[in-house]
Design a protein around this nucleic acid. Structure first.
Lengths: 124, 124
DNA sequence: AATAAAAATGATAGCTATTATCAAGAGGTA
DNA sequence: TACCTCTTGATAATAGCTATCATTTTTATT
């Protein structure tokens, strides 16, 4: 399942996700690949995003406004979602770690989201 | 937009969501209403869930496994999502409050999620 | 009660992000 | 070359959800 073969397109998608801080959607990645690969298909983008996520090279931030957003930064960090423009920003502090053994729950990771208005949207 | 009229179905949906701790999906609410209202439509469930959420009487927990999950408990609390069976549990501690003024972001609320395996799924 | 206005409903069609399918293509290996 | 596996583009299909609309129910007013 792990990406074993060479795939210039998958490499380019990964590289783009590492460069960018916008937590793009599949559609956005697709659009931003068209300059380099004019004939790339949306299916290829979805497939490669899924493979990269399975390989642990990227993360899925979550679904906002009906679209899944991806992150090339796999480190533990919180996210801020602007409810006005839909932008997703990194938010410094890592989510709190929970003691794994409580009540029989095996906690593997956590995600912390802040919601509100980003500087652009509240005119600051 | 706020629910002004009496609607036995909307009332029943709200009552069910207050009783239950399973954070049900629209589909589940629909199914669980069919005994009391055999002719209820899925559209009615979606419409009433949206109205109840807009009125602040219920909350949307998030989208997991492609389905939006709802919560009749509108108090601030974290959630645990079982990645094996999809169950959503309340998780006692409230999410940390973030200082609202940082860097021009207006933070209105936060959501904290834990992911892992629930007691049923890890055999405890 | 009678009537009119507003809201709610069931049925159904439509939308959209995502996934599955499949034949053709590219790259590696012997 | 032949063979194998992975990848790709095109396209069809899926699923959760939303919009539409004619009919019914509820509320307000007289």
């Amino acid at each position: 399942m792990t990406a074993r073969n060479n795939s210039k397109k998958r490499d380019a998608i990964l590289r783009r996700l590492k460069e960018v801080r916008t937590h793009p959607s599949a559609e956005y990645v697709y659009m931003s690949m068209k300059s380099e690969f004019p004939s790339i298909s949306l299916g290829t983008v979805y497939r490669n995003l899924a493979q990269l996520r399975e390989a642990g090279l990227i993360k899925s931030v979550g679904i906002f406004g009906g679209e899944e957003r991806f992150d090339g930064d796999t480190s533990d960090h919180a996210h801020f979602i602007c409810e006005s423009c839909g932008a997703v920003h990194d938010f410094g502090e890592p989510p709190p770690v929970f003691s794994a053994a409580s009540d029989g729950f095996r906690v593997e990771r956590s995600e912390l989201f802040y919601y509100g208005s980003c500087p652009e949207c509240c005119g600051g």
